[in-house]
Write a protein that binds this DNA or RNA. Structure first.
Lengths: 210, 210
DNA sequence: GTTTAATTCAAACGTTTGTTTAATTTTGGT
DNA sequence: ACCAAAATTAAACAAACGTTTGAATTAAAC
């Protein structure tokens, strides 16, 4: 067995956990479920992560790790107009959240439940960072007199909430859009451009000075 | 013990279950938790409902039961303009979802997990009814040439998603708005008017013919 | 090749889970 | 006051839970 295959078991557990937590929730998923789906002995969960909850924490940290670089770069960019930045942000979030659908489903499910302080605080800090980046873009547009004065917090709520709706009520939108709910690729291919267009239209209308 | 107090035990169990399911999720809540919070013997759950899952089902059915009358009446109303109807719909949903915060938190948490077919179908049918009512109002406004042609499905996603964001990420908005997270009344008093104003502005801008 | 550490495994641990049982108490009609 | 039905209870049930154990296997270092 190679070193690659060895550390793979750790990765297999994380991937299996992501699938199952998204499908059945954290408490609805047993460590035996995870081990079976990952095709790994159940004791490896304690061995690699210490506990089921630590596994969730590692999963969240790992999936969040690659975040925020693009947004940071976007913020420092001086050649783009506020409008272009907003559109870019919308495209970024739609792609990011829909591509990581299962992960964000876990976050949406677990954020309210009183899980460990560490996990709650981690998610909160990520959400706050995202908010502050968007706020800066909106403030910049307002100072340059190209954006109307609006409620920045709830405008973020609308952006995130719209996208989250499409993953939390996937069933409903599959019926409405006549998409086969089992065909993940088809769902993404149809939903992404539609979401982007809708959000760009709506946010543009919302921010435009009458 | 009076008859009132007797049937109260059934109600106490439902109320306790609502609190706990919202806080800890369905699978994170034990029947012993529920019985203890309701101050009722745990065997009464099986006695009254048959099982923990049936209790969830009764809870959902009961809380949904009082729905949709106002929306139905609104639809048949011929004296209000489409604009007035849309604003009324926004006020209705903000009040309804924020007042029933715990219940809607349960729905948002449990809708994605593969719970019983019956529960999933029940929630789906309610969401579809809500959508069709909104769709009719939007279609009416479009036919009367006062609304722009927009994506009705995703416009509903934005309305519901914005409101859901404020209850699913209550932590975040309490920080942003500097609200004491433990003061439920203060949260509702501050959030409701703000949400209504934001949504009315945004949806109006979105629907207005340029 | 030997040694040491890291990994894997089946089995078992003690709790907690949802549900049922069977006995007891309370209720409401006559 | 009596009785059948309904409500309530403590105790027990098997099953599933997360975690630990200690031996067996594999990998890496020298």
């Amino acid at each position: 067995m190679t070193a690659q295959e060895k550390t793979d078991k750790r990765e297999q557990l994380i991937n299996a956990a992501e699938d199952l937590f998204a499908e059945k929730g954290f408490d609805g998923t047993s460590v035996r479920d995870i081990a079976q789906r990952a095709d790994v002995n159940l004791a490896m969960i304690s061995y690699y992560f210490g506990s089921k909850e630590k596994l969730l924490q590692v999963l969240i940290e790992q999936r969040f790790a690659s975040s925020l670089e693009l947004l940071d770069e976007l913020l420092r960019n001086t050649t783009m107009t506020p409008w272009e930045k907003i559109e870019r942000v919308i495209e970024y979030y739609v792609d990011k959240i829909l591509n990581g659908r299962k992960f964000h489903s876990i976050i949406n499910q677990e954020y309210n439940t009183d899980r460990s302080r560490e996990i709650i605080d981690l998610i909160t800090s990520i959400k706050m960072k995202n908010y502050h980046l968007i706020k800066q873009i909106i403030d910049d547009g307002y100072e340059k007199k190209v954006f109307r004065k609006i409620d920045p917090e709830l405008t973020m709520a609308s952006m995130m909430g719209t996208i989250n709706s499409t993953i939390n009520s996937k069933n409903v939108y599959c019926i409405l859009f006549r998409i086969d709910a089992t065909d993940e690729a088809e769902y993404l291919a149809r939903m992404k451009p539609r979401l982007k267009e809708h959000l760009k239209h709506m946010i543009r209308a919302h921010l435009t000075i009458e």
